Computed example of a mutant assay.
Amino acid sequence: MIIQEVFIRKLEMMMKQPFSTSFGTMQNRKFILIEVIDDLGNRGWGEGVAFSIPWYTEETTETSMHILVDFLIPLLKGQTIEHPDDVSKIFSSIRKNNMAKAAIECAVWDCWAKRRGITLTQALGGEKESIDVGISIGLQQDFDVLAERIDQSLTTGYKRIKVKIKPGNDLSLLSQIRERFPTIPLMADANSAYTLKDIDLLKRLDQFDLMMIEQPLAADDIVDHATLQKKIRTPICLDESILSAEDARKAIQLGSCGVINVKIGRVGGLTEAKRIHDVCQKAGVPVWCGGMLEAGIGRAHNIALTTLPNFTLPGDTAGSSSYWQRDIITPEVFVTDGTIMVPQSVGIGYEVDLKELDRHTIERKQIRL
């Protein structure tokens, strides 16, 4: 397969409601979409998940655009791609910028699957016909609003509730949740808001019988997390710390976590996400698929990834209607009783709604290779 043309779009979509974490609040979501066309005319789609502000990682929508246009896409010129795994090798001379890499690598995976007339799930080696999903709920100013969101999510059937915590909004918040919802599958995401100085407070989270606490300490740490995990009963889930299969191997060896969250954009694409899955499966460490407030194309890739067998915990791939008035794919991603049926059409399994896409496009580029 030879990629002959790449289209880049920058989109701007308004989320139904603001989403708040320990590092900021977002409602106006800007992101990048990549469309690749191969030498047989097959088209593949990928979504860039970097934010406009470098909250989660150092990448932004603008830096992703720069890296894609000036470095990554030119590296594909004249390259024969036998398998999508080749893309990570082609990009190996460019350090990090994983979200930019993942945007185009995922598009190549989609195109490659369509070229062969198979689903992305089959291309990845996935096994499931449906996946269990949870939902991530941002920080709320009022507990009653949060409780209502949890109630709605449980009514929809989501298999796990994730809430955000931060210093000053943790013990009391979780206590109120447990008083109202004593038995729900519950986890807390700290987004690196704590240090080992908070170890006594973090020990107190054990009383809430959480499924896990996600990334309590620094975004680049696996050493202090190992110290913390020895002191608390609640499993630690690493997110920002894991950028590669090697990171996963080292974290598991150190005892830094009991669970790992895999985000396609964070780790540079589906190839590395699969490698992390395999490392964790071999070590007996469960994984789940995290979310980055994706639109439909990103959600489609998350669904396909989650069909791999060691994704045994519900992920963050909620239905389209949880975040968007109208998504950019047809059909939209629907959740029924906490599950999503895996699409059976070739590639990502969803059609891109070009009219809706155009409505949200604020910038576009066409690059011929």
Rank of each mutant, 00 (worst) to 15 (best):
E12N: 13
M13T: 12
M14F: 11
M14G: 01
M14H: 13
M15V: 08
K16W: 06
P18R: 05
F19M: 08
S20Q: 12
T25S: 09
M26I: 15
R29V: 09
K30A: 13
F31H: 12
I32M: 11
I34F: 05
I34T: 04
V36S: 02
I37G: 02
I37T: 14
D39C: 11
G41M: 02
N42E: 11
G46Y: 06
E47V: 01
E47A: 03
E47Y: 01
S52P: 02
I53K: 12
W55G: 01
W55R: 15
Y56E: 10
T57E: 04
E58F: 14
E58I: 14
E59D: 10
T60D: 08
S64Q: 15
M65P: 04
M65E: 15
M65C: 02
F71P: 03
L72W: 00
P74H: 12
L75E: 14
L75S: 10
K77W: 03
K77C: 04
K77R: 15
Q79K: 15
V87N: 03
F91N: 04
F91D: 03
R95S: 15
R95C: 11
M99P: 00
A100P: 05
E105K: 04
V108C: 04
W109Q: 05
T119W: 04
T121K: 14
G125L: 01
E127D: 09
E127T: 15
K128S: 09
Q140F: 10
D142S: 12
V145D: 15
D151E: 15
T155L: 14
G157M: 05
K159Y: 06
P167T: 04
P167K: 09
D170A: 05
L171Q: 08
L173D: 02
Q176M: 15
I177Y: 10
L186V: 10
Y194D: 10
T195W: 04
L196D: 07
D198K: 02
D198L: 05
D198I: 00
L201I: 12
L202P: 01
L205M: 10
L205G: 00
D206E: 04
D209H: 14
M212F: 15
E214M: 04
E214R: 03
P216F: 05
P216L: 06
A218E: 11
V223Q: 08
D224L: 08
A226H: 07
Q229S: 10
R233H: 14
T234Y: 05
I236G: 00
C237I: 08
A245V: 05
A248V: 09
I252W: 02
Q253D: 11
Q253K: 13
S256Y: 07
V259R: 06
V259K: 08
V262H: 06
G265S: 01
G265E: 08
V267D: 00
G268D: 02
T271W: 09
T271F: 07
A273K: 04
H277W: 03
D278A: 10
V285H: 08
C289R: 09
E294H: 00
I297G: 03
I303D: 03
T306R: 07
L308W: 03
L313M: 13
G315S: 00
T317W: 03
A318S: 15
G319K: 11
S320W: 10
S320E: 07
R326G: 13
D327Q: 11
T330F: 10
T330K: 13
E332A: 14
P343L: 06
P343I: 08
I348R: 03
Y350L: 08
V352M: 06
L354I: 12
K355H: 13
H360F: 12
T361Y: 06
E363R: 14
Q366N: 13
I367M: 09
